[in-house]
Design a protein around this nucleic acid. Structure first.
Length: 280
DNA sequence: CTCCTGTCCTGCCGGC
DNA sequence: TGCCGGCAGGACAGGA
């Protein structure tokens, strides 16, 4: 589920609710998700959460004893915040709960268990296998057309597949790659290292634009994604191509001419949606 | 190095 | 109604 916008929306929710709070307890309700839960979670107890950050699709909860809890939501993960005065019945797939001294709880639910939780020394976070060689943050100034071009330079496979590679650029997933390529009018099967300078410029801008708008909309709720108050994102209503096979893309006559609207193909085992009329 | 496939896991949907 | 195959927002390992 969660790509950069969904994770960022969760990060903002967590920041408002638990930054500065002191950890009272942690509770795991099964031994593992994708990986075993850390064995030393109790070392967080009594310590203050100093920042709630994000790198790519990872949430980074740092504490005043120089530890960082890394949370990846995988495909189906969500985090909800429950305040002291709110009733909450634990649900199926609620796997990890953190309770703070102010009574607030955060609950990590993950149906498919592709997510994970790590507890690292804060100094080790940038060097950890999952984060060490990851690409630039697409919404930062470190991400621009020349950087994108150089990172695509040695990739001869399709641009769609290349943009899903977290080493090229961080945080994109299947939805936002499809949307950004559509906005850029670039065909998903084009070779990644074959974009013109102008196309790279357009694509770079489209990625930033799509991600920014998706964050503002609270992310996309297809099935699992929730804001931390349990409400739904609504960027799915703004999709131009994703999950819209045979429909027209906005402002395009692609469903009435020779083509039959948005097409769905498989690339690297994953669905790609695109408009054959607009994307060349 | 890159590329390609299979795999992890649960739930849902469509077809028969 | 039930069963079965296919598919889903991610990302690894292993082999070519």
């Amino acid at each position: 589920m969660p790509e950069l916008p969904e994770v960022e929306v969760v990060r903002r929710g967590l920041q408002g609710a638990i930054e500065g709070a002191v950890v009272r307890s942690t509770n795991t309700r099964r031994p593992n998700l994708r990986y075993p839960f850390p064995e030393n979670l109790q070392t967080l107890h009594g310590h203050r959460l100093t920042s709630v950050g994000r790198r790519a699709k990872h949430l980074l909860l740092s504490t005043d004893n120089h530890q960082t809890l890394v949370i990846h939501l995988g495909m189906s993960g969500r985090i909800v915040i429950v305040r002291d005065d709110q009733d909450y019945q634990l649900q199926k797939h609620d796997h990890f709960i953190m309770t703070f001294e102010n009574g607030t709880r955060i609950i990590f639910n993950d149906t498919r268990r592709f997510g994970y939780v790590l507890l690292l020394n804060s100094d080790d976070v940038p060097h950890h296998k999952s984060l060490a060689s990851i690409g630039p943050e697409p919404l930062s100034n470190d991400f621009n057309a020349p950087v994108l071009q150089s990172r695509l330079g040695h990739k001869s496979g399709p641009i769609k597949t290349a943009l899903l590679d977290q080493h090229v650029v961080a945080g994109l997933g299947n939805i936002y790659v499809c949307e950004a390529l559509h906005l850029s009018s670039i065909h998903p099967t084009r070779a990644a290292n074959d974009l013109s300078d102008e196309e790279a410029e357009t694509l770079c801008g489209a990625i930033k634009d799509v991600l920014t708008k998706a964050i503002e909309a609270g992310g996309s709720t297809l099935r699992d994604h929730r804001l931390t108050d349990g409400s739904l994102g609504y960027f799915q209503y703004n999709f131009s191509v994703y999950d819209r096979e045979n429909l027209a893309c906005p402002g395009c006559s692609c469903d009435i001419g020779k083509t039959k609207g948005i097409q769905k193909i498989k690339q690297g085992g994953r669905s790609t949606y695109f408009c054959p009329q607009k994307q060349k």
